[in-house]
Amino acid sequence: MKNMSKELLDRINKLATPVKIMHVCGSHEHTIMENGIRSLLPDEVEIVAGPGCPVCVVPSREIDECLELVEKGVTITTFGDMLRVPGSNGSLADAKAEGGDVRIVYGINKAIEIAEKEDNDVVFMAAGFETTAPTTAAEILATPPENFSVLSCHRLIPPAIDFLINSGQTSLNALIQPGHVCTIIGTKPFEYFSNDFGIPQAVAGFNPLDILMSVYMILRQIHNETPKIENEYARAVKEEGNEIATKMIDEVFDVASREWRGFPKIP
């Protein structure tokens, strides 16, 4: 792995040119930070983090909706990361400390198990991008108990990127796309950014070599003046994505404009 990293860094240095590459994935940022990848790259090659944390983008309004349900005696189930996300007047952690029935689960299936054992209304606060939406959809299609409901806080990645590009407030030159999202929706929804805006892109996996290879792919596109979306994460991502998963998403969810924390409504 050390030799491969050195070879990739040599290639990156040979093609280095001023570029700002944005990723939209918390896992990518973790890999970049943990392995000091920014410090290994030439100064003119910059990687910046976009809105890629599914917890961080949930707006206070949706936290407020959950808090209102807690006050009405509803059991709220959600991921542990959601507990401290602030609403307008407190968080789910605050509500739990005050005696509200707020429970941490590791997935929607565990929330359904709670609903099956109790008479109380149980709501699962479903957060996440295209990666977690199929699981939510599958459980809804499986006909859960009548006392079970979902508050959907799911978001879509391509519209957010489109908003950032068209806002004119982000001077990005290239994109590293999230491998787990592309595992579900494939690479086609991202072709638009290369075709219409001339933005080089690479779908990346989650180890350091994946990130370095995606940077090299982007620099190679810039050098050759061939902006497109390249699939570095071919071991998991197909061009068409997971058609079974996307079919479930389409069957269960309607796409609507939604507010993101720190952003206005994104179409």
Results as ranks from 00 to 15, higher is better:
Glu62Leu: 11
Ala126Trp: 03
Lys228Gln: 14
Ala138Leu: 10
Cys53Glu: 08
Glu232Tyr: 07
Gln177Thr: 13
Asp210Val: 04
Ser152Phe: 09
Pro159Asn: 06
Ile218Ser: 08
Pro200Asn: 09
Asp196Phe: 08
Leu83Ser: 05
Lys247Gln: 12
Val255Asn: 04
Ile108Gly: 05
Ile244Ala: 14
Ile229Glu: 02
Leu151Met: 12
Pro189Val: 02
Asn13Pro: 00
Thr77Glu: 02
Cys182Ala: 13
Asp121Gly: 03
Gly90Glu: 02
Ser167Ile: 01
Gly186Thr: 08
Tyr106Lys: 13
Asp121Ser: 12
Asn3Ile: 05
Glu239Arg: 14
Phe206Glu: 04
Asp94Glu: 08
Glu191Gln: 13
Leu175Asp: 09
Thr135Trp: 06
Arg38Met: 01
Glu259Trp: 07
Pro158Arg: 08
Met248Thr: 08
Glu243Ser: 14
Ile12Gln: 06
Leu9Arg: 04
Leu209Phe: 03
Ala234Ile: 05
Lys2Gln: 14
Met33His: 05
Phe193Lys: 11
Asp101Glu: 09
Pro54Leu: 08
Leu69Arg: 13
Arg258Gly: 11
Arg11Glu: 11
Pro144Gly: 10
Asp101Gly: 01
Thr183Lys: 08
Ile47Asn: 02
Glu44Ala: 07
Thr78Ile: 01
Leu69Pro: 04
Asp101Trp: 00
Ile229Arg: 01
Glu62His: 07
Gly128Asp: 09
Glu251Gly: 10
Gly36Met: 02
Ile47Tyr: 00
Ile184Thr: 05
Gln169Pro: 00
Thr131His: 05
Val252Ser: 10
Ser171Gln: 09
Asn242Ile: 00
Ile108Val: 14
Cys182Ile: 05
Thr246Cys: 12
Cys25Asn: 07
Val19Pro: 03
Ala111Cys: 06
Glu230Cys: 14
Ala127Arg: 00
Ala133Tyr: 10
Lys228Pro: 01
Met213Asp: 13
Ala93Gln: 07
Pro189Glu: 04
Pro189Ser: 03
Leu156Met: 13
Val48Glu: 09
